[in-house]
Design a protein around this nucleic acid. Structure first.
Lengths: 184, 184
DNA sequence: GTCTATATTAAGATAGAC
DNA sequence: GTCTATCTTAATATAGAC
């Protein structure tokens, strides 16, 4: 896509928000149009492949942001410090709990959506597990605590999306460093 | 609704599964028809109000099952025993993690769906908090651990729905008694 | 009570003016 | 690059036979 009057990044972010809030099936072109301040036909000009191409762009941007968070967090420091930076990155990504999770939103469609959501979850957990392994955990233990941590954060985002209560999300992130590094 | 060839309960359960898997918007009448083995027109005969009436029936049944689980669990025993029975009830409800969460599915629609999901989450957490209070926790602490426990279970259901991995869900339930009763 | 057939409305997608 | 207008397809909903 070439440069345009409204930049790609804010456009894709606005579109992503619709998918997060309404799910894949609920993100119809009227809602996408309204959220992006572009008419339906203009969206087709930017994304000739229609809704499919839009969702691919949204997923790609989310992946990109996730990779950036992990890369920045893993640069230096001990495992607990790295986990703390991951938590800080996720806090920003999810607007301190006011955002919703794209993985969940896209999982609620067909089997392909669920599979892609699963890949994201697995990738996310693998990043966490690397920290846990560095902290000295066995492979099995690292996998378990990582999945539990992902679940805690995902669940907290469900809580905040439905109730508006973000304290649960904040606790999940605050707990992350100890959770990934305590050997008990 | 009067008695019919296919009973209401298995019918509503089959319909509920579609909402859980595809979300509110993704649960179209073709999918509902296929899952229930009833043609679209027959669904309208059973639920004259259409999709809205179907989803109300699905929610009512879920509420009913949740209330039954809590009532049975709270009958007797100390807090940890009660929490154990809640966990057992939830394990059955969610088919040992192979089921999906209706709350999440219905939240991914409009603001009303989110609000209703929030009410369910809050009601669920309140049940947990009663156990935690009985175990001697302060009101604030009981609220926090209860919401955290709900988040852990909800998140685990996201993990299992997307990856097929149910161990996370099992751990969340196994942890529940200690989580709701440990005063630390 | 369930079905086939059909009407109605909304969603996805395209054509062509500016 | 964005728009209005339009087409096409799929969804919701109804009518009437069996």
């Amino acid at each position: 896509m070439r440069p345009t009057t409204i930049d790609d990044v804010p456009l894709i972010d606005a579109l992503a928000d619709v998918f997060c809030r309404y799910g894949y099936e609920g993100a119809n072109l009227n809602r996408l149009s309204e959220a992006s301040s572009l008419k339906r036909a203009s969206l087709y000009h930017r994304f000739p492949g229609g809704k499919d191409e839009i969702v691919e762009a949204v997923i790609a941007r989310a992946e990109e942001r996730y990779q950036a968070i992990m890369a920045a967090a893993m640069e230096q420091g001990d495992p607990a410090e790295r986990a703390g930076r991951v938590a800080a990155g996720l806090a920003e990504y999810y607007a301190d709990g006011h955002g919703s999770c794209l993985i969940i939103a896209l999982s609620l469609s067909d089997d392909e959506g669920r599979a892609r959501g699963g890949d994201c979850v697995t990738g996310w957990a693998k990043g966490f597990a690397r920290i846990a392994r560095d902290a000295g955990m066995t492979r099995a233990k690292a996998k378990a605590v990582s999945l539990d941590a992902v679940a805690q954060i995902e669940g907290a985002l469900v809580i905040s999306a439905t109730t508006g209560e973000t304290a649960c999300f904040e606790r999940a992130l605050a707990r992350l460093p100890a959770q990934l590094t305590t050997l008990d």
